[in-house]
Design a protein around this nucleic acid. Sequence first.
DNA 1: TCAAAACAGGATACGGATGTCTGATTTAAT
DNA 2: ATTAAATCAGACATCCGTATCCTGTTTTGA
Lengths: 169, 169
Amino acid sequence: MDVKVQNVGFLKMFSQTVEYALRAVVQLAYKAPEPCTTEQIAEATMVPKAYLSKVLQGLSRAGIVNSQRGIRGGMSLSKSPDELTILDVVNSVDPIQRIHQCPLGLKSHGANLCPLHRRMDESLATVEKAFASTTLAEILAEPNNSAPLCERVDQNPYVNLTTPRSPEN
Amino acid sequence: MDVKVQNVGFLKMFSQTVEYALRAVVQLAYKAPEPCTTEQIAEATMVPKAYLSKVLQGLSRAGIVNSQRGIRGGMSLSKSPDELTILDVVNSVDPIQRIHQCPLGLKSHGANLCPLHRRMDESLATVEKAFASTTLAEILAEPNNSAPLCERVDQNPYVNLTTPRSPEN
DNA sequence: TCAAAACAGGATACGGATGTCTGATTTAAT
DNA sequence: ATTAAATCAGACATCCGTATCCTGTTTTGA
């Protein structure tokens, strides 16, 4: 089972790095304005610590978070949660790549996308727009019986339930 | 220039494979019901021939296209262009992976996503919906001064115009 | 002053997506 | 039957995102 027949993978529209970055800033927003150490964030968000460190460095360079070294140091948001959008975070780490030109590089189409690529770009634009209009504060405030992120954890993750390709059986 | 400061890449929401598959079926729809050889499709869509072959094999297994070996053979759509949606194609090659459970694997949240992941999944759902409601026929029929795909080509492709991160210079 | 806490960043490893190549197989036309 | 045209299949090769490790640097507090 799980034969992986050839070039059939999964479309991860969001990279791991984006996922990790978002978890981190949500956690930071949750604790704001107190700083958190990378280790604390890593535990709360279940992200590999060493890699999270890299991601946070990126967010720091982009001005999303402040880093403070030494005892009592850590990471903190550089702005208030209601001034930071999801898009800010995503674009700091893995900028959404809109389709600005015909990917085939045809001169005749310039910025004038063919119907196919126009549809694709419209989808990208929709996501971009949704992300741009959502602040961290909104995520924290959301009425929901699940906490923004989560403290207590039991066990394992990521099962794929989509049954993406099962012709029969 | 082009320093690639660390873990800063680009969010390609759609894989190359998806892009190639879509180009191929659009081209096939354009020529339908005549079959096209892999080579013909590769030229028209500017996709590496050998790799396109793999992609088409996947589409064939998924029942999107029919393959016919031997002289006068080639690839052809297995359905009418107005019965094939973009989503059909995408899901045959790189199924869109919705978020069905908390990616942190928290038991307490089950299928009950936290606000962050709910927003992300909503974006995925939006894209999925848009793709599900677009047929190949619609793409061909679209009033547009750029042809669905393109025959004549001049030169090179894929420039990135987004200036994703340039703090200064 | 000094030691511990914390981030910074280079080197490296690993796996999957992307891409190439070659030979086998099928098919239609002659 | 033979041959040429085409797909099919698998073995590679390569690149990049992900992840780890390890050492250095900065900062704080006692």
